[in-house]
Amino acid sequence: MKTVVKIDTETATATPEFEKAALRQESRRGLFLALPAYLYLIFFFVISLFIVFIYSFATRNRFGGTDLSGWNLDSYARISEPIVRDVLFRSVWLAFLTTVICLVIAYPFAYFLSTRRVAVRNIMLVFVMIPFWTNFLVRNFAWRVILGNDGPLTNATEFVGLGSAELLFTQTAVVLGLVYGYLPFMILPLYAAIERIDRRLLEASRDLYGTGLQSFRHVLFPLSMPGVIAGSILVFVPSLGAYVTPEILGGAKTTLLGSYIVTQFLTARNWPFGAALSFVLMLVMLVTTIVYFRKGGRTL
């Protein structure tokens, strides 16, 4: 047999310096790959976040512009004004409500999914994925049509003699839209968590005289906690900052934080106040997620 491979002629004995240089080269390669995205993120997230932060201390001038001189905490102070507090409380409350409703619907569903045969389960999952991928605006608009003045819902309620449902432009409609929009975000992590649980643990629980309910409380639910938390964050976070849904399904009296911030920029032209509100919103999200990761969650 002939030798095909030629040994490279530049050879030397390995030294710690060579090893270090090789490691450095490897690390440079990694950094080189990361660099474009790294710079992009620094530019558009670190720097722009910093700009938002700066703006939040600025003052709105008489013409709707922003003066960057004369920094103050006025914008943050405004958060305690009753009207702003109402918006904040309402947003948190509706986001919380949305999360709870999603959890109540999604948990049994995810469990049900995990007990199906694999083939059935995959098909069922696909049909959960489809709304997840479908245009969010369109899905909210569908509810506008359904809940509308002479839409199918009102027609139906009038037909059975309940009178007009008149849900549109209420908080109920907003929560309905949010639940509709974010339910897949709750189902998927929950399913992932429940599916991982060893069924034999439930059998063991029953063997040790646990009732079905006790098995759920003491075995299934605690073990599925990572999924519950991940799902709750994935629903709560976008609900709190929701803009499209309240704009389409909510009315003037149901202004939520997202719309309120947008108003500060596009209509009221109070950029510093808007910046302060967005910064607070982002902090809430960041703290929530960091707490989750600290607690050892990984399913985000």
Partner: peptide, 19 residues
């Protein structure tokens, strides 16, 4: 940093981009 865009609410990100 890579997780930031995923967890930041749309509205905040919109504000960031605008500014």
């Amino acid at each position: 940093l890579l997780y930031l865009p995923i967890i930041i609410p749309d509205v905040t990100m919109a504000v960031m981009m605008l500014l």
